[in-house]
């Protein structure tokens, strides 16, 4: 885009120095083409960007210590981004900022999503004694989203293979079963952005594989943008399209391949689910 702007300036100078009319015309056509390219670039950036953070800083107290310090981030539509980093580096905080549960101390963060799905970190979610069945949890959520069609519940349960548990109490499900229900709930109403905070923690290998396969599927087939906090680096490397590494209040995006070379000693992580973890 910078280069196209540069060319635009040169062309402008040329046009005014030209004598030949025909040459002038050709040049003008070329110039408009570049203009279109220039503006479509900007347009594309606005339309195809799902999440943008600019100079984002955040502290829970409003004063130092800052959890995030001048973070810049741009995530395009259709990406599957795994967010990695040590315990306490601010991954969940970043997710809460994206979800607008928290307000930036300075800077800005915005999403373009019309509908967001969210699967919280399990330790944050300790309401096991609540008397609610799987069906009720999904049905009430459906009502909140103002979806008329009741069949989305059955379809959602089927998607994660949990039809048999519709009548069970949420509190009696195992960790992995509960996680599947939360994923089904987050997918209700066809969100364009799905945010997951450690979806595989406490989930057995078999279910992890199911969950990641499933996430990869909806990312590739339905184009849902996924941002997922991961401690399971092998899963991050083999499933996502980008890795976002958060340290010292900032982060950088890189390809899974590059990340694997840099941090996992070239291990490709083809197994899908492994033991490498931060």
């Amino acid at each position: 885009m910078n280069t196209s702007g540069f060319y635009l300036q040169i062309q402008l100078i040329c046009v005014y120095n030209m004598n030949d009319n025909r040459e002038k015309q050709i040049c003008q056509v070329r110039m408009s083409c570049i203009c279109i390219y220039f503006f479509s670039g900007q347009w594309a950036e606005r339309v195809y960007t799902m999440i943008t953070a600019k100079d984002l800083s955040f502290s829970y107290t409003g004063s130092p210590p800052y959890v995030l310090r001048g973070l810049n981030l741009m995530i395009k539509e259709g990406e599957y981004v795994s967010v990695v980093g040590e315990n306490g580096c601010g991954k969940s905080t970043l997710m809460r900022l994206i979800l607008k549960f928290l307000k930036p101390t300075s800077g800005s963060i915005a999403t373009k999503a019309a509908r967001v799905g969210y699967v919280p970190q399990k330790s944050d979610y300790s309401n096991a004694g609540f008397p609610i069945t799987v069906y009720e949890a999904l049905d009430s959520y459906r009502r909140l989203l103002k979806i008329r069609d009741k069949s989305v519940i059955e379809a959602g349960l089927q998607q994660v293979g949990m039809q048999a548990f519709a009548g069970a109490l949420m509190g009696t499900l195992s960790g992995g079963q509960g996680q599947k229900i939360l994923i089904a709930r987050a997918l209700m109403g066809a969100p364009d952005l799905l945010i997951l905070d450690e979806p595989s923690t406490g989930v057995d290998i078999q279910s992890q594989q199911e969950i990641y396969g499933f996430l990869k599927g909806i990312n590739q087939n339905n184009g849902i943008t996924i941002v997922s906090v991961e401690h399971n680096l092998d899963a991050a490397v083999s499933n996502s399209t980008l890795i976002y590494h958060l340290t010292d209040g900032r982060g950088h995006l890189c390809s899974p391949k590059k990340y694997a070379q840099e941090f996992l000693g070239g291990k490709s992580g083809q197994g899908g689910v492994g033991n490498a973890a931060i």
Partner: peptide
């Protein structure tokens, strides 16, 4: 449904608007 979700899972309620 709103009150049920605020009691059960306030964050999910907020995400749902």
């Amino acid at each position: 449904h709103q009150m049920l979700y605020i009691a059960y899972d306030e964050e999910a309620a907020r995400v749902a608007g």
